[in-house]
Design a protein around this nucleic acid. Structure first.
Lengths: 205, 205
DNA sequence: AGGATTCTGGAGTGTCAACTCCACTCTGCG
DNA sequence: CGCAGAGTGGAGTTGACACTCCAGAATCCT
């Protein structure tokens, strides 16, 4: 539980190795959770030795924080450019379809790359929690802004609380993913998102 | 990872000890998660010796399944009798208030007693997953039935998909709890629930 | 009562995970 | 070219954790 990483000086090779470690760790954490992912598993998967791992990260907590950042980037990357243009009913539906299709592909295993870490670490590691809050915010922002644009443009009534709807959409997504992961069926995710989308529609001008 | 527990014969004292172990384990798991809860912690908290623990449970997995059942009972108990009469807008709002107040009390720490276990075990232990599915179902059923009664009674239009709304409500609850736990603010839970409640209202006859 | 069974205490055992150490090799740069 | 610092390999240490064992006490049942 080191404070913050001293901004180390890294060569190109060093950056590559570090990235390889984080990517391997992220994948394992997504599949098995933080606690069940051993340093040694990461080590093997990344093809590095133990000393290298501790050369780049003070301890497991610090590595996990790097994983959170990596997964946040990943989530945003996958959903981009969709996420940047969530400003029409069409776009919102397309986004929903992509999310559902993604879970379908992975046979409903693995919940949200950020959400499942949040469930595990939010109450345990204050620094991780801060990073998770930041991660969710980076995710929520484009949704919020898309809805705001719809309102400003006149697609939604002027008195629409777009911030609330954006938050509700993110919550529906998280809850839907959890139930989908548990039940191994995409219906919960689809229904949860559809319900909030329907609610957004009731604010159409 | 034993199959199913052989239905052991227990005396009154045995049942009490077993219950004490499960209760202690449930509390620790709720606070720290499955992986971070050691058998020894449970042992100490329950005031029993190691051999007793393994006298009642084949292994940790089996204990965790008992915890899932215990938490399901607990969740239903806390929300009863509210949960059995979720058949009016008033009751739904009261229920929402209780849920929000509960998170407020615990300062937004600890997500859902079932949901957080689900996030950790759904992909890891098939038997636990089955129990979690059953637990969520026991939770969803009264919600579903309450909404169905509202429709049958004519409070909601006849073409209302009450099953979908019930599922959406549960998803909103789960997602709202996760975001509330992460952000340490009750707003996400409240907003998520309110949004689905508003959507239910649009189906008022 | 008394024999079978359940219940309990506590000292072990083996394994595995996180983390350390040190010696060696590469790389950037003046 | 040379050296300081970055990068690497792998054996080793420490502790925690799940689980076992066995002997003795309490309890049940006929």
């Amino acid at each position: 539980m080191k404070e913050t990483a001293p901004p180390r000086r890294l060569t190109a090779k060093g950056r590559a190795t570090r990235a390889r470690i984080v990517a391997a760790a992220a994948e394992l954490v997504f599949a098995h959770g933080v606690a069940r992912t051993g340093i040694d598993d990461v080590r093997r998967a990344a093809g590095v030795s133990a000393s290298q791992l501790y050369h780049y990260f003070a301890d497991k907590d610090e590595l996990m924080r790097a994983v959170i950042a990596h997964q946040t980037d990943g989530v945003l990357e996958v959903q981009r450019p969709l996420l940047d243009h969530l400003d029409s009913f069409d776009a919102l539906e397309q986004w929903r379809d992509v999310l559902v299709a993604l879970q379908e592909e992975r046979h409903c295993t693995g919940g949200c790359p950020i959400g499942s870490i949040a469930a595990e670490l939010a109450d345990e590691d204050p620094e991780a929690r801060a990073d998770l809050v930041a991660g969710f915010e980076r995710w929520e922002a484009p949704i919020r802004e898309g809805l705001a644009r719809m309102r400003d443009r006149g697609d939604l009534r002027a008195d629409t609380d777009t911030d609330a709807l954006a938050l509700a959409l993110l919550a529906a997504l998280q809850g839907g993913l959890l139930l989908t992961q548990t039940r191994r069926v995409t219906a919960p995710l689809r229904v949860a998102l559809d319900t909030v989308l329907a609610q957004i529609r009731t604010h159409a001008a």
